[in-house]
Amino acid sequence: MNDKQLEKVRKGDFLLLPHYMKWVGIIPVLIGVMLFFTQDYQSMFKGKVLVGISVNLVLIGFLLIILRKGKFPDEHLLHIRHKAMAYAFMHGLTLVIVVPFLSYFAASLLNVEMDTYFMDFGIFSIFIFQIVYLINYWRFKQDL
């Protein structure tokens, strides 16, 4: 690894997507959200397939946004990225543990079957981590 590559690693702009991927990532998120709210829930098969597609589109979009480089990647932005990841881990883990319990409690109160409105736990966890990361990244960037 030469000096230039080491400098890149130090700045944290290695293996990251270009900055414009932010805009590319927003497209699947918007399509996913639109699909989620406009689908025909009466048709169970079609509904389930479309829920899967829309949720995955949102996750892929968020992933593209998260993995993009900053406009000007430097050590401060890398520091912010690390801090946001740490917060996403702490807050995300807490939410992932707490929310299913609360939901189970709410479902038992409302006499609703859990399967009818819960998405897959793995997808739910990834979604929470992504959302918490993006919120914290944006929040820390505001302090720049």
Partner: peptide, 10 residues
């Protein structure tokens, strides 16, 4: 220095 202006400000 090779950093962003915001970094210098911070």
């Amino acid at each position: 220095i090779g950093v962003s202006r915001q970094t210098i400000n911070s």
